[in-house]
Amino acid sequence: MLEARLDQAEILKKVVDAIKDLVQDCNFDCNDSGIALQAMDNSHVALVSMNLQADSFAPYRCDRNIALGVNLTSLTKVLRAAQNTDILTLRALDAPDSLNLVFESQDKDRISEYDLKLMDIDQEHLGIPETEYAATIKMPSVEFRRICTDLMALSESVTIEASKDGIKFTCSGDIGNGSVTLRQHTNVENEKENIEIELSEPVALTFSLKYLVNFCKAAGLSNTVTICLSNEVPLLVSYALTSKAGSNLRFYLAPKIGD
């Protein structure tokens, strides 16, 4: 059976909120190392990958591999009943037809209990190769969201160019064009404001802004976002879920390529 206790319901609430417009139904795959999710959007252009390692929970117990087939709209309805600071416990049997969710207030004076019906989901899993990216940018997540939403007002697509001069986001549309350039920046007082750029070779790729703006719904999960680019491969946008390494919410986006 599965029993997983999260100290803050906020993490799961925000994860589901960030991905529910991209994917509708998905399996939460539970095993002794933690809970993982991998799902593509209907158009097979974007992929969501969530990893919550066992050490993100206390306690965590999962004796066998269990796939929890969840409709995210339904899960959202149940999670709405949890306060951000509630302790959240997930329970399921080995071959479950429902997922039990318990929300406890921090001072334990309120306990809510819900059962969510599960579904059989035949999910296509993709093997994501380990990639040494040519450019890695670590920046404030709200700043990345602002750049994407600002540029989407002008165009459907953005070209991201990484060079020794910095990272340049460029778009052009019917009303005109725009660009934003980021340079490496270290704020000694507040390192959450840092912009870190690692570059091994120049990169230029074009992406649909609609998806990038969608990924930025995860900005509430983490102060910083990591964006990884290499020529001719999908973009990776990654948010840390907890202070523990390995627990993250990742989005992959296929580029637009020449005909």
Binding site: L47, L126, A254, K256, I257, G258, D259
Partner: peptide
Amino acid sequence: PTKQATLGKFFGQP
């Protein structure tokens, strides 16, 4: 002119 690629082009079946 650019065309939106799909992920299957880059990520294989595991």
